[in-house]
Design a protein around this nucleic acid. Sequence first.
RNA 1: CGGGGUAUGGCGCAGUUUGGUAGCGCGUCCGCUUUGGGAGCGGAAGGCCGCCGGUUCAAAUCCGGCUACCCCGACCA
Length: 586
Amino acid sequence: MLLRMSSLFLRTLREDPADAEVPSHRLLVRAGYIRRAAPGIYSWLPLGWKVFRNVERIVREEMDRAGFQEVHFPALLPREPYEASGRWTEYGDNLFRLTDRRDNDMLLGPTHEEMFTLLVKDLYSSYKDLPLSIYQIQTKYRDEARPRAGLLRGREFVMKDSYSFDVEDVGLQRSYEEHRQAYIRTFDRLGLDYVIVSAMSGAMGGSTSEEFLQPTDVGEDTFVRCVNGDYAANVEAVVTPVPPARDWDGVPPAHVEDTPDTPTIDTLVEVANGTFPRADGRPWTAADTLKNVVVTLVHPDGDREPLVVGVPGDREVDLKRLEAAVAPAEVESFTDFERHPLLVKGYIGPAVLGEKGPTGIRYLLDPRVVPGTAWITGANEPGRHVFDLVNGRDFTGDGTIEAAEVRDGDTCPIDGGRLETARGIEIGHIFQLGRKYAEALGLQVLDEHGKLVTVTMGSYGIGVSRAVAAIVEATYDDLGLCWPREVAPADVHVVATGKDADVFETGDRIAAELEAAGVRVLYDDRYRVSPGVKFKDAELLGMPTILVIGKGLADGTVEIRDRRTGEREEVPVGEAVARVTAIVRS
RNA sequence: CGGGGUAUGGCGCAGUUUGGUAGCGCGUCCGCUUUGGGAGCGGAAGGCCGCCGGUUCAAAUCCGGCUACCCCGACCA
């Protein structure tokens, strides 16, 4: 259907909207693709809706091609299934809740694991029915504390979510791999320049998990990748290579020293260098100290447990990494020093820690704190620290934990190369859920021996509306939007400039012929609009090819421009349709 | 939830310090001119100045309270 600018429901803005910061948000609003309806909730206008549906179509085609079957659940859901899985309470304020006229609790679905699981349970009861992968493309509702950046984090958004059901673990791995391949094809077609990173399954339970990230500074996820290209991971999932254990021969016995007024690492290093210079003359640094950070874990059943994390003093504890490591427990700051008199704030040391120590508090160490390493650390008395305290000789932890911050330049766990940090938008996430939901909701089938077994599941998501924004972030330039052809609202933007009837007659004819040839056309047939306005709009709106009909017509030529490269070519009017068609099909 | 900011026509903003007819640019409508890089001239429509209360002869402006939105952080498959 030919899109005519003269009647298209569109108003482009000459200036940036004041409330939009990130490029995708700014440009989509300015180019008249979306409008804000409420915080984190957007309306789609004709051009935006076309892009959205193109993205949705590509996702659907690739899911169908992989043999997954599409279903469609309601967005408005009853409370019971979410009560059964525990998420009615777990989701907390992020759940949009409402009641119907009979006062029954309802919710707007934030995600649909429960519904899928129960549907399969309803219909299937034999191992012969499996494996099965089903999906939907559905509007999801999450009452985010802080929606931001337009489509990147909304309270209403569209997600494609798939679920796989298998009897055995190997089957789950196969289903997972099928989804992984389908995602690769999907994101390739969407024109994204994504990175696949190892991720934490976090609160979802389960084991293997990977994220598809579109690298960009405005992304909300931080990930690392090895400069040698053999490793990429979300910071939460980064594995620290463990240095070899060291020999502690020659390390003097541990000795406690007075270090007044040194509650922080900085003050400690200063006093250590001033009062206790090292024998070899090398100055103490923060990396020589062992920092013991107390936090409170809140377990899902409500139990509160203090935990001490020991990290080299030059690193902070990264709360996100810590939470990922202790999931499903949550982390709160520790304030209860009154009930734990042995914990001396600012001077906490290993001597009182550990499940077998005087406090009985679990003590987990950063992987860098290997046996044989010597540390300056708290002596559990105000103003006192212990020097040359050796792991394995003088203290041990209850295990290790990945909770220290990850930094640019850290070491790759695969080949020892340098890790670089970057930000990205999460556009897809695949993981092996395992049996958590199947167990909670009683999804079992009979195996070949007639025995009931619990089904193992995988869960796979693509943020469809978010992908629209991610594509913009990956493709925009100074002039405006710049769509990859397959998701663009049209293949070619035909611009008629000038006032001659000839120009518009030619434009009408070429637009019609292009449409007849199967080329999607946006036709700027606005009369009495100056050429400058039309060119600016064409660049802002971002169709991949622009065909200008104007002053060249006197010489029998029109101009074809590539929106991305800016390249221009003059072609005879008679060849314009064939030329554009060839470009579109190439 | 903590910190910062903003709220004036469809959009972007000035006006608030020092109370006195509500303004500018863009957009929209009408007329004439203009047509290869966001045209010109003339005319017009469009505003409970976020809300509630107070002070005052008089409040966009001063005072008190509230709300909404944006940004940073916390939170968030």
